[in-house]
């Protein structure tokens, strides 16, 4: 039986079962045999486009090398900076709003709602917007803001707040607000869910001790709960920034990037360069720059994330 025992899985973390000094166990060899083909294939599928993008960015359409000309064109395009500005503005509207609102709801529900049934209902209600396709959310927004048939103007006019038709999608600031409101509607529940779950991990004893000492709800939050939520804020920021960079669907549906370039976020801009201006070289240069910046950003923040990697 002894040869069989050597094959048995062992608790992870320890390394018995090795056949010799520096040698690999049978299990490890099996693991590599399974992993390598799969990982290799996925790695190729991910990497080849990146190589192609770099190649496209330094060649012209007929395949001759043109150096960094596409990059200078991409960086020399004022629309690029409009797109960066729009993306930054969008992020600076939606991220703080979502985090503050989500935090407020999480704290409120955590403090006031004690019934398990009601909490479960709120959980389902919060998950709901997350699974609605952004295209459908864009349709809803269109029904609300669109000129002519938008219900928002109808409501505002019938309560007498305004008498004229407000161009929600026709004025740059309002259009940005409309587009951002869609994001806030869809993603505030995500922040709520994460922070609410975080609040459940705060030990009850420390809260009770603080209350005995006469802590107000603010000091209780500031000195105890915030401590437990801090890594989660980082996590939320990480995922939401990644998502802001990929926002496309609802903006495309709602404003198409307009009026002018007011809501032309980075993703819509690259799309437009490639599929409206058919400028593959410039689009590739943009794609490479985005990929490089994302990789740098990613490597900076990833270690700080509270993820279970074991």
């Amino acid at each position: 039986m002894s040869h069989l025992v050597a094959e048995l899985p062992v608790p992870t973390g320890t390394q018995p079962g090795r056949t010799g000094r520096g040698g690999r166990s049978r299990q490890e060899r099996l693991a590599y045999r399974i992993l390598l083909p799969a990982l290799g294939t996925v790695f190729l599928i991910v990497t080849i486009p990146f190589v192609i993008a770099i190649w496209q960015s330094i060649t012209s359409d007929d395949g001759t090398l043109i150096g960094l000309r596409n990059y200078t064109r991409a960086l020399g395009n004022p629309l690029f900076f409009d797109a960066l500005r729009a993306t930054g503005l969008y992020a600076s509207i939606v991220l703080p709003t979502e985090i503050l609102l989500g935090l407020a709801f999480a704290l409120f529900v955590h403090r006031t709602v004690k019934q398990a049934g009601l909490r479960a209902t709120l959980y389902v209600l919060a998950v709901l917007p997350l699974v609605v396709p952004p295209v459908a959310v864009g349709v809803v927004a269109r029904l609300i803001y669109a000129p002519g048939y938008g219900v928002l103007n109808y409501v505002l006019q019938s309560v007498g707040i305004t008498h004229s038709e407000i161009q929600w999608l026709g004025v740059p600031a309002l259009a940005m607000g409309s587009v951002a409101s869609v994001d806030i509607w869809q993603w505030t529940p995500f922040v709520y869910l994460v922070l609410f779950a975080g609040l459940q991990t705060v030990p009850r004893e420390s809260i009770e001790a603080a209350q005995v000492d006469g802590a107000t709800w603010w000091t209780q939050f500031r000195y105890i709960e915030l401590h437990y939520l801090r890594p989660l804020f980082l996590l939320i920021l990480f995922f939401r920034v990644a998502d802001v960079l990929r926002v496309f669907d609802h903006v495309y549906i709602l404003t198409g990037g307009g009026p002018g370039t007011a809501t032309q976020l980075l993703s819509l801009y690259i799309y437009r360069i490639e599929f409206r201006f058919f400028d593959g070289g410039q689009a590739a240069a943009l794609a490479v720059m985005v990929l490089v910046s994302i990789s740098i950003l990613y490597s900076l923040v990833t270690r700080a994330l509270p993820l279970e990697r074991a």
Binding site: V46, A53, Q56, S267, I270, G280, V290, L297
Partner: peptide, 16 residues
């Protein structure tokens, strides 16, 4: 890290 990859950045090469 793949989760962080913005689709629009790979749209161009994937299209090709």
């Amino acid at each position: 890290s793949l989760r962080f990859l913005p689709p629009v950045a790979v749209v161009v090469p994937y299209f090709a």
